[in-house]
C-alpha cells in the first residue's frame, strides 16, 4: 500500500542543489569561511537520498522566505 512517496514536492521542503568544487571554492572565498564553520546537514537526511552527496560537499538550499521572498542558504554534508 505504501508506494514511493515523493516528499520533495512538499511545501515545507526547499530546493536542494549540490555545488560543484569550483562553486564551493568561490563560496568559501566569498564568506571567508572553512567548511567546518558552515551549517551542517546529515548524510542520512531524507532530502539527500539519490543526490549522491559525500561528506564535505556543500548543498545550496533555496528557501522560500516570508521576509526576503527567496533566500539562499548553504549546508555542508557531514556523516551521520
Amino acid at each position: 500500500m505504501n508506494k514511493k512517496i515523493d516528499v520533495k514536492k512538499h511545501i515545507l521542503v526547499p530546493k536542494y542543489q549540490k555545488l560543484s568544487d569550483k562553486e564551493k571554492e568561490e563560496l568559501l572565498q566569498k564568506y571567508n569561511v572553512t567548511t567546518s564553520e558552515l551549517p551542517r546537514i546529515l548524510k542520512s537526511d531524507p532530502m539527500l537520498a539519490g543526490v549522491g552527496a559525500k561528506p564535505g560537499d556543500v548543498m545550496q538550499i533555496t528557501r522560500n522566505s516570508s521576509t526576503a521572498g527567496r533566500n539562499v542558504f548553504y549546508r555542508v554534508v557531514v556523516n551521520g
Binding site: V7, I11, L12, P14, P46, M47, L48
Partner: peptide, 25 residues
C-alpha cells in the same frame, strides 16, 4: 495530498522531510 499535509510533531518532519523542512515547521 502529499504536498500540503503536515503535522505539529517537528521531529517527525525532520525524519520524513529533512532538517530544512523541520526548520520551516
Amino acid at each position: 495530498d502529499g504536498t500540503r499535509t503536515t503535522t505539529n510533531d517537528i521531529f517527525e518532519i525532520e525524519e520524513v522531510l529533512g532538517i530544512e523542512a523541520a526548520r520551516h515547521a
